[in-house]
């Protein structure tokens, strides 16, 4: 497996530097607000909390990407398990330990397939794991609640196992770093842009029953910002490949922009249905891990298959590194 230096690509350098600069600028702005007495103490405290969470999260997100392929797979596995835990506890799936256990095994298997660089197994795990979840609880002879627990198990596996593991598989491409960093940062920026445009422009609500705070202006602003940013970064990342055509790059941007917001709205729908505000409490100012990474859930498989269609991931790299064959 070919390994490149962490900062071999200029886009990697640019994204890491820009992220550090944005954090420093945000700290300076909040500090200036505190010195000038602007904004309520509660608002400033909330902003500090959010900034503090970002200062913890960004190194945790970017660090594995910079460190190497195995680190990415490890981090995505932990992320999937953390998301599953919150989902379990929010939906009540944790009361079905057998189904939850099968989903855990599915998450581990999907990421193992990515680590092994075995695409056949990676793809086969979708129907195989669903089959195991569907059949797994039948021997207990307890048909009450079968549809609900099985459906929730499949839903969880598709999102946190099969879906997120696409990020792991991307790391089999030697030049994966700028791609992953682009996805991680633009998806995070999409949330910030939606919040900012919504506050600045206002206007009608997007889906008031699903997510009362999201406006149409915020959604469109976020889509525009994400599309342009992804297209710009992709033009540098995919230069010289069949994908380096403006319409494909813009389409990738739209895909990421819509996927990010759709993931957010999907989680909002789950939360409204259950009647909870946040999925967890582990990240001050954000809620749970799933509240922070919901935008990535749909973006990961969508962008993987879009990029894979043009350039592929790790096509010229050795396969089945662990299992052999």
């Amino acid at each position: 497996m070919i390994r490149q230096d962490a900062f071999a690509h200029p886009v990697t350098v640019g994204i890491v530097a820009a992220t550090a600069a944005v954090l420093a600028a945000a700290a300076a702005v909040i500090g200036a607000m505190a010195l000038g007495g602007r904004g309520s103490p509660e608002l400033r405290r909330e902003l500090w909390l959010r900034l503090g969470s970002w200062c913890l999260l960004l190194p945790l997100m970017m660090g594995p990407v910079l460190l190497g392929r195995e680190w990415v797979v490890g981090a995505v596995t932990l992320l999937g398990l953390a998301c599953l835990r919150e989902f379990d506890r929010a939906t009540g799936l944790f009361r079905e330990p057998l189904v939850a256990g099968l989903v855990v095994l599915g998450i581990l298997a999907a990421n193992f397939a990515a680590l092994d660089h075995w695409y056949g197994f990676f793809v086969a795990l979708w129907p195989l794991t669903v089959g195991v979840i569907v059949v797994g609880t039948i021997p207990r002879d307890r048909p009450q609640g079968y549809v609900q627990r099985t459906a929730l198990g499949i839903f969880a596996y598709m999102l946190f196992g099969a879906g997120l593991a696409h990020l792991s598989y991307m790391a089999n491409e030697p030049g994966y770093r700028p791609i992953l960093l682009m996805l991680l940062t633009t998806v995070a920026l999409s949330d910030v842009a939606a919040f900012t445009f919504g506050k600045l422009i206002g206007g009608p609500k997007l889906l008031p029953a699903t997510s009362p705070n999201k406006s149409v202006s915020g959604a469109l602003g976020a889509l525009a910002v994400t599309t342009l940013l992804v297209a710009a970064l992709s033009s540098a990342i995919f230069a010289g490949t069949p994908m380096a055509r403006p319409h494909w790059l813009i389409l990738l941007g739209i895909l990421v922009g819509i996927g990010a917001q759709a993931g957010d709205l999907m989680l909002s729908s789950i939360k409204r249905d259950i009647g909870i505000k946040d999925m967890g409490t582990i990240l001050p100012g954000h809620g749970g891990v799933l509240d922070r990474f919901n935008s990535l859930l749909l973006v990961a498989p969508a962008s993987f298959h879009f990029i894979g269609y043009f350039v592929g991931f790790g096509l010229d790299q050795p396969v089945r590194l662990i299992t052999g064959g």
């Binding site: 506890r89 939906t91 009540g92 079905e96 259950i274 909870i276 409490t281």
Partner: peptide, 25 residues
Amino acid sequence: MEFRLRPARDHGLPAEERLRSLSRE
């Protein structure tokens, strides 16, 4: 037991408070 779409009784509690909660699941 019938499945109910219901969060954990201790959902939303901070970690340390959760350990001491009578609602811990």
